[in-house]
Amino acid sequence: MTSARQAILGRLRSSGDPAAEYEQIARDYLIRHHEQDLRELLAERLADYRAIVHDAPVSELPTALREGPYVIPPDLPAEWTAGLADRVVTEPYDLEAVGGVITGCAVAIAETGTIVLDHGPRQGRRALTLVPDHHLIVVTPDQIAADVPEALARLDLTRPLTFISGPSATSDIELSRVEGVHGPRTLEVFLV
């Protein structure tokens, strides 16, 4: 394989100082498109993509649960699931057999209605938020970023990342959007 590597790199031999040239790239775009009321904007944009949004304290979370046990990451704050001791389970558990999953998140992007998981604290490994059909996410005010640049600046790209904007969807039939294919078919967000 060394030969293919050498052949490809040999045909690309460049000159100049990439780091200095990189600094010259014109970035005249806006760093954010909205300044204020980011929480309201996030709620509106999440709802645009058919996420169910609750502007409510975390104590109301139990009202959103449907049938079956809900899986949670082991480090989920106890007050998020107060009174739900008989409804929540932790891994190892058959993820196909749960009704849903409850997690926190790393960052939320108001402009695009996106929630980003970095699968760190309160989020669990990636499969946890993928296999169950109902995903309940708790977003705290400090996690809301105005726009994509600010969100990326807060994230560590070397962690596994999942950007979620609404429930699973497809535009593959006549280019019209249909919600609910392989990922969770219901996305429910608590803006606490």
Binding site: Y29, Y49, T112, L152, A153, L161, F163, S165, P167
Partner: peptide
Amino acid sequence: ARDLEVFLQVLPRSSTAERMNPYTSAWT
């Protein structure tokens, strides 16, 4: 990583006409 702030804005809007596509996965 910073360059993604441009491409994660222009790709979904050009492609499926969404502010953001439902899922983006990143791994290292």
